[in-house]
Amino acid sequence: MNEHAVEHAIEEAHEHFGHDNSPEAIRKEIRRYLIVFAALGALTIVTVAISLLHLPTHLAILLALTVAVVKGSLVAAFFMHLISERKLIYAVLLLTVFFFGMLLWGPWHQRYNAQKVWKGYDLNASQPAPAAPIENSGHSGH
């Protein structure tokens, strides 16, 4: 990459993904941060209020996680500036989300798989049931 191209790339990066450092733009940003803070505070109250209703577990989990995802998105989008970030960061995060999903899915998959290979395995029991006797396949050891 020649010197001119490097300068151009830097200028472009500033223009599209850098932060506008003009006082007006920064003051506008500050106002936005305060609005997000108010929204996060209100959503925290909503989260606690939902818990006070003592809803059925599945509904309570769904609502609590929905509010948490909205709050998390606000923090990530505005405080961490993901709303206007470089593609490379999005690529890193996409990979992270994939592996995070694998972390959640992997153990679950194994657990349900255990039901198939381990007769008598109870998904809802804290202690696994005794293993079923191994069927004699007719092969004796050598």
Binding site: I50, S51, T57, L65, V67, A68, G72, A76, F79
Partner: peptide, 20 residues
């Protein structure tokens, strides 16, 4: 950015551990 991540983790820990 690090501090916001710490905040983000708490946003999920709070309902999962305390409220459910």
């Amino acid at each position: 950015l690090y501090w916001h991540f710490v905040d983000l983790v708490w946003i999920f820990l709070f309902p999962i551990l305390y409220l459910l």
